[in-house]
Design a protein around this nucleic acid. Structure first.
Lengths: 151, 151
DNA sequence: GCGAGAATCTCGTTCAGCGAGATATTACGA
DNA sequence: TCGTAATATCTCGCTGAACGAGATTCTCGC
């Protein structure tokens, strides 16, 4: 019924890894009194901070597929938890900029710390050039899906 | 601040791919009037069916980290949508077996169809032995996380 | 300035998931 | 074999995340 395509195995594996990471994130969220959406938001905000992208509620809502009301509630939650700070954009005063607090960085680091352990463990027994192949493949998958969604 | 470990790049990529797949699932869910949890449940149930594992509400709830009330509501939804069928286990009459309907298979196939396209596109430009390396790596990651969670 | 337009927020509502506990069935020890 | 514990599922009441509609605030071109 399946396995016609040589990609099937990869699809199943990627999906399975996704499910595992997802559950890991949900457990991390529950342990810290967060909701899954909060974790997703944190990931996006930390990525944006690392990439130097200026994050606004509208941008965040679009990334998470939330409507404006839901986005406001989300930012309220994150601000109440001391994870982000709202500040007016001085250039375009209609905008609000979301700045991640130190606490958010620490939290993100805690989360990834546990994940890094897993990946490092998995990476043992692989040559560096093999890991490089994996990196190239994952980057290609990422680009494909991003293009397909055409955000 | 990061990139101390050679695994960091892989972690970031895996996380990014996870987020993309997740969003893809959420969009698929929204398009078919489902909730993200429903999609996660369907994936688990289809996997169980393929593996020959007998699925019960308790098992499903444990996989998705839902409590019993939430699980009941979930199964109610799936049953109302005609995706699964409840049936008493004749051996242990405390149990309820969840059987996926044809409709669920079709739905899953529709979803994976779109994902397969992405992965096939990404797999172009890779030798078969390289894809095999990727498979091995993903399987290792999966095993690591599964062991860490020690379900 | 003034209306068009964009970004954000408020209000009221729906429903997924939680905790507590009820119900039904099976397993086990005296 | 009877009572008690263990297991599996479901019911009830509640909280709060997210939605749709629309108000509000701010910017910019004419």
């Amino acid at each position: 019924m399946d396995d016609q395509s040589p990609a099937m195995g990869l699809v199943h594996l990627l999906r399975a890894v996704t499910v595992e990471f997802d559950t890991l994130g949900a457990e991390f969220a529950a342990r810290h009194g967060l909701h899954p959406t909060d974790v997703r938001a944190l990931i996006q905000l930390l990525d944006a901070a690392r990439a130097g992208t200026r994050a606004t509620p509208g941008w965040l809502g679009a990334r998470l597929r939330l409507n404006s009301a839901g986005t406001t509630a989300l930012v309220d939650r994150l601000e109440r938890l001391g994870l982000v700070r709202r500040s007016r954009d001085t250039a375009d005063r209609r905008r609000i900029l979301l700045e991640v607090e130190e606490k958010a960085m620490d939290l993100g680091w805690t989360f990834f710390g546990s994940v890094i352990g897993e990946v490092v463990a998995a990476a043992e027994g692989f040559e560096e050039h093999e890991l490089e192949t994996v990196r190239r493949f994952l980057a290609a998958v990422l680009e494909s899906t991003a293009r397909a969604r055409s955000v």
